[in-house]
Write a protein that binds this DNA or RNA. Structure first.
Length: 197
DNA sequence: GCATTAACAGCTA
DNA sequence: TAGCTGTTAATGC
């Protein structure tokens, strides 16, 4: 993980966002490196009918829109806080200087980018070819892998049905039906509406 | 506000 | 045509 104190010495500041606050939006020119210190952020798009597709949900330690910093392109999606969040911001030019002076951070940066690409590849093939149950399993397997919790116990999925639907492109009703089916098959458990996988 | 259920319509194997 | 998924609406939490 990138050292936060060093970022501050390069001129970073800490900004607080409330739920639904926009961090950046589609079409903007990337000007900052963002690192989540506290809270959660979603990356989304809306289709022509206004239906939301969530590209990913980021938690503390993750950087937002990192890949766009290394292109000359505008952001392809919106970044929106979904909890009260604290985010470290460092102007792009300063971030590039920072990387030059701290080459070991390059490695971390590439790791982050690769991790994100891995998620994208997993989800993309799942979204393209698989049935709803497989899409949800792909997503939940990913969540489970990254919640490097020591235990083999069931992980509570801290996402609403609506969020699961937006992450997979399914309708909420289908998510509910599929999840209930998986409970019947013993794949997961539901305890007062909470999903344990 | 989110979750659930049911009735219905459209698609497709 | 049977099964699956999305839409809509009503209802519960």
């Amino acid at each position: 993980m990138i050292n936060e104190d060093k970022l501050f010495s390069f001129g970073a500041d800490l900004k607080t966002y409330n739920p639904d606050d926009l961090i950046f939006s589609e079409g903007e020119v990337p000007g900052f490196f963002f690192l989540i210190s506290k809270g959660k952020v979603k990356l989304n798009n809306y289709n022509e009918e206004g239906k939301e597709f969530i590209q990913g949900i980021l938690s503390p330690g993750h950087s937002i829109g990192l890949s766009s910093l290394f292109t000359e392109k505008t952001y392809p999606l919106n970044a929106v806080a979904i909890e009260e969040s604290e985010i470290i911001r460092l102007p792009k030019s300063q971030f590039l200087k920072f990387l030059k002076q701290h080459p070991e951070s390059y490695f971390t940066t590439i790791q982050c980018l690769s991790e994100h690409m891995h998620y994208k590849f997993l989800m993309m093939q799942s979204m393209a070819f698989q049935n709803p149950a497989q899409k949800l399993l792909t997503l939940m397997n990913y969540l489970k892998d990254h919640h490097h919790d020591q235990s083999e116990d069931a992980l509570q999925i801290l996402l609403t049905r609506k969020q699961l639907a937006s992450l997979t492109g399914l309708s909420v009703e289908t998510v509910i039906r599929v999840i209930k089916n998986m409970e019947k098959q013993g794949i997961l458990k539901i305890k007062n509406r909470k999903i344990f996988y």
